Amino acid sequence: MLNIIKPVLLNKIREGCRSDELRELIGVLELDVLNETKEAVRTAFEKYRLSLFDGEVSDCKSGEQFDELIEDLELFRDELGVDVAALLDAVEEAKSEFEANEEAWSDHMQDEWKERSRDERASARSVSDMFGSLRRAD
C-alpha cells in the first residue's frame, strides 16, 4: 500500500507542508541517502523554510509550542542534513520575547488584581461605615 501512496504523497509534499506534517512524514517514510524520497522531503523542507516557517513561529502561543518547533527543526537537521541554525535562532528569539511579554502581562494582571481587591475592600468598608452611621442615628 505504501508503494501506491508514496508517489502521490511525495508529489503533494513538494508543494509544501507544515513542520508537524513534515515530521510525521519523516517518521513514516524511509529516507535513504540516495533516493528520491529524501530529495522530495528536502524540497518540502525548503518550501516550508521559505513560505511557512515565519507563520508557524507567529502562531506559537505557549512555551511548549516553541519547544515542539525547535524539536522539529532539530529533527530536520539530523535527518535531512539541512542547515537550520538561523531558524533555531529565530525561534529562540521569538520564544524569549514571548516569555518576556507573558511575564509582563502576568505582572500587569497581578497589579490589576491588587488594585481591584483594594477597591473592593474600600467599597465594603464604606458600605459598612454607612450602615454603622445609620445605626448610631437611632
Rank of each mutant, 00 (worst) to 15 (best):
Leu29Ile: 04
Gly16Met: 08
Asp111Trp: 05
Leu29Ser: 00
Ala94Arg: 01
Cys60Ala: 07
Asp111Phe: 06
Gly63Asp: 09
Tyr48Cys: 02
Tyr48Arg: 01
Glu71Cys: 15
Asp107Met: 15
Val57His: 02
Ala104Gly: 01
Ser58Arg: 06
Glu30Thr: 12
Glu120Val: 14
Phe45Val: 07
Cys17Asn: 02
Arg118Lys: 07
Leu2Lys: 15
Leu134Ser: 02
Met1Trp: 05
Ser106Trp: 08
Glu99Cys: 10
Ile13Met: 03
Ala85Ile: 15
Cys60Tyr: 03
Asn35Leu: 11
Asn3Ser: 11
Asp67Ser: 07
Leu25Arg: 10
Arg125Phe: 10
Val41Trp: 05
Pro7Lys: 04
Lys95Ala: 03
Glu68Met: 11
Val127Ala: 11
Arg23Met: 14
Arg23Ile: 13
Ala40Ser: 07
Leu75Arg: 09
Leu80Arg: 02
Phe76Cys: 02
Ala90Glu: 07
Val91Ala: 01
Trp113Thr: 13
Val8Glu: 11
Glu92Leu: 11
Tyr48His: 00
Phe45Ala: 10
Ser51Asn: 14
Ser128Trp: 10
Ile5Pro: 05
Cys60Arg: 02
Val82Ser: 00
Ser106Cys: 12
Ala85Phe: 14
Leu31Asn: 00
Ala104Glu: 04
Arg77Pro: 01
Val84Asp: 00
Glu120Lys: 13
Glu30Leu: 08
Leu22Lys: 05
Arg135Ile: 11
Asp32His: 10
Ala124Ser: 05
Leu134Ile: 07
Glu99Trp: 11
Gly55Met: 10
Ile4Phe: 13
Glu68Cys: 08
Ile5Lys: 09
Leu2His: 15
Glu24Met: 04
Asp67Cys: 01
Glu21Cys: 15
Ala137Glu: 14
His108Val: 04
Arg121Lys: 14
Asp83Ala: 07
Asp129Gly: 08
Arg49Leu: 03
Val41Leu: 12
Val8Leu: 13
Leu29Val: 02
Glu64Trp: 04
Leu9Ala: 04
Arg136Cys: 05
Leu34Gln: 15
Ile26Gln: 03
Asn35Ala: 12
